[in-house]
C-alpha cells in the first residue's frame, strides 16, 4: 500500500505542521486586520507528489489537527479537504510541468474552492450577510496574495528536501 512514499508521509506531516505554525503566527500578528485562510498549502503538495492512500492520511490528519479546536465537525472538514485533494491528485499527471504558473494556479483554485466551502459550512460569526461576505472577500484576497508569494515554494520544498536525501519524488500517475 505504501510502496513508494512511506517516508514522505512523515515529511509532509512535519512540513504541514511548520506551515501551520507560521500561518498561525502571521494571523496572530495581523490582529484582526486580515486572516490568512490557506488550506491549499497543506493539500496541494501532498496531492501532487503522493499516491492516493498516503495523500489521504496526510490530508485527513492535517484537517483534523487544523480544525480540532473549531466549532465544526472536523470529519466534515477532512472530507472536504479530501475531495479537493482527490481532484488535484487525479489530474496531477497533466500538471507535471510543475512550473510557477501551474503550481500557483492550482493552489489558488483549491484555496478559493475551500474558502467557498468554509463560507457555507462554518458558522457565520458576523451580524449581517453583507459584512460576512465583505470579510470573507478581504480574507480570500489576502490569502490569495499570500499563496502567490509562497505557493510555489511550498510545493517545491518537499521535492528539494527528498532530493537532498537522494530520493526522487515526481508527479507520476499512480502505479
Amino acid at each position: 500500500m505504501f510502496r513508494r512514499f512511506d517516508v514522505c508521509i512523515w515529511l509532509f506531516l512535519v512540513l504541514n505542521a511548520l506551515y501551520w505554525v507560521a500561518v498561525s503566527a502571521l494571523n496572530t500578528c495581523a490582529q484582526g486586520y486580515f486572516y490568512l485562510v490557506v488550506p491549499a498549502l497543506f493539500i496541494v503538495p501532498a496531492a501532487l507528489y503522493m499516491n492516493y492512500v498516503s495523500m489521504s492520511i496526510v490530508v485527513v490528519f492535517s484537517a483534523m489537527a487544523s480544525f480540532s479546536n473549531a466549532d465544526v465537525n472536523p470529519f466534515l472538514i477532512a472530507a472536504v479537504w479530501l475531495m479537493a485533494a482527490w481532484l488535484v491528485n487525479v489530474c496531477r499527471f497533466r500538471l507535471r510541468t510543475g512550473d510557477y504558473m501551474t503550481t500557483v494556479s492550482v493552489s489558488l483554485l483549491v484555496n478559493m474552492f475551500l474558502i467557498l466551502c468554509y463560507a457555507v459550512i462554518l458558522p457565520c460569526g458576523v451580524y449581517t450577510a453583507g459584512e460576512y461576505v465583505k470579510r470573507i472577500l478581504v480574507d480570500a484576497a489576502t490569502s490569495g496574495l499570500f499563496i502567490l508569494a509562497v505557493g510555489n515554494f511550498c510545493a517545491k520544498l518537499p521535492v528539494c528536501i527528498m532530493d537532498y536525501f537522494g530520493i526522487d519524488i515526481t508527479m507520476n500517475e499512480e502505479i
Binding site: 496572530t28 495581523a30 479546536n69 458558522p123 460576512y132
Partner: peptide
C-alpha cells in the same frame, strides 16, 4: 499569555 489569535468571519477567539 496570549498564544494565538483567531479573528475572522467565523470566530473571534484567542488562545
Amino acid at each position: 499569555r496570549v498564544a494565538s489569535r483567531d479573528i475572522n468571519a467565523w470566530w473571534q477567539q484567542v488562545t
